[in-house]
Amino acid sequence: MNADNYQVIESVVLNLSLVLLFVLLGLAIHDVLKKNDVPLVGKVVAYGVLGLGAAGFVAKGIIQLFYSASGVS
């Protein structure tokens, strides 16, 4: 395999592991919030922070796609 194949495999595995990480974080946050009887405002803040973090990674991926399509390294 050449270097391009390794880069593609690396990026796919990285993206899948980040998705898995955010799913596990969401499940852990849900469990802690459920066991401690947190009010609705606290749940919204906790899930909002997790969602904004995930949105940041999605935005990073989209920006990388546009840069690579335009030839910027």
Score class of each variant (00 low, 15 high):
Gln64Phe: 09
Asp4Pro: 09
Tyr6Asn: 14
Ile62Tyr: 12
Ala54Ser: 14
Glu10Lys: 12
Gly56Tyr: 10
Lys34Thr: 01
Tyr47Val: 00
Leu27Asp: 13
Lys43Pro: 11
Leu16Met: 15
Ala59Trp: 15
Leu25Phe: 06
Leu25Arg: 01
Val19Ser: 13
Phe66Gln: 05
Val12His: 11
Met1Pro: 10
Ala46Met: 01
Ile9Ala: 13
Val72Gly: 01
Leu50Arg: 06
Lys35Leu: 03
Leu24Tyr: 08
Tyr6Val: 09
Ala28Thr: 05
Val32Gln: 01
Ile29Gly: 09
Lys35Glu: 09
Leu18Asn: 03
Ile29Phe: 10
Glu10Ser: 12
Pro39Ser: 13
Val44Arg: 03
Glu10Asn: 12
Ile29Tyr: 04
Gly51Val: 00
Val49Pro: 04
Pro39Ile: 06
Val12Ser: 15
Glu10Cys: 12
Lys60Cys: 07
Ala28Ser: 09
Ala46Asn: 02
Asn15Pro: 01
Ala55Ser: 04
Ser68Phe: 06
Leu65Ala: 11
Ala54Met: 14
Lys35Asp: 05
Ile62Pro: 12
Asn36Gly: 02
Ile62Gly: 04
Lys43Tyr: 06
Gly26Glu: 01
Ile29Gln: 02
Ser68Arg: 14
Asn5Asp: 05
Ala59Thr: 00
Val13Gly: 08
Ala69Cys: 02
Gly48Lys: 03
Val32Glu: 07
Asn5Cys: 10
Val44Tyr: 10
Ile29Cys: 12
Tyr67Lys: 15
Val8Ser: 06
Gly26Arg: 02
Leu65Met: 12
Val12Phe: 15
Leu33His: 01
Asn5Ser: 10
Val41Ala: 09
Ala55Phe: 07
Val8Arg: 13
Val19Asn: 11
Gly42Asn: 08
Gly61Lys: 04
Val72Ile: 12
Ala59Tyr: 14
Ser17Leu: 08
Ala3Leu: 10
Ile62Gln: 06
Leu27His: 11
Ser11Thr: 05
Leu20Arg: 00
Lys34Tyr: 01
Gly53Gln: 05
Leu14Phe: 15
Gln64Asn: 10
Gln7Pro: 09
Ala28Arg: 06
Ile63Trp: 13
Phe22Arg: 00
Val13Cys: 09
Val41Glu: 08
Tyr67Ala: 08
Ser17Trp: 08
Phe66Val: 05
Leu27Met: 07
Asp4Thr: 12
Leu20Gly: 02
Leu21Asp: 01
Ser73Tyr: 15
Asn2Tyr: 13
Ile63Ala: 08
Ile63Arg: 11
Lys43Met: 07
Tyr67Phe: 09
Val44Trp: 03
Ser73Ala: 11
Leu40Asp: 14
Ile9Phe: 15
Tyr67Ser: 10
Lys43Ala: 05
Val32Gly: 00
Val72Leu: 08
Ile29Met: 08
Ala59Gly: 12
Val12Gln: 14
Leu65Glu: 06
Ala69Arg: 05
Phe57Arg: 05
Val8Ile: 10
Ser68Pro: 10
Phe66Asp: 01
Leu14His: 15
Gly51Glu: 04
Ala3Cys: 04
Ser11Cys: 13
Ala46Thr: 04
Val38Phe: 04
Gly53Leu: 06
His30Ala: 04
Ala3His: 11
Ser17Pro: 00
Val72Cys: 04
Lys34Asp: 05
Ala28Asp: 00
Gln64Ala: 14
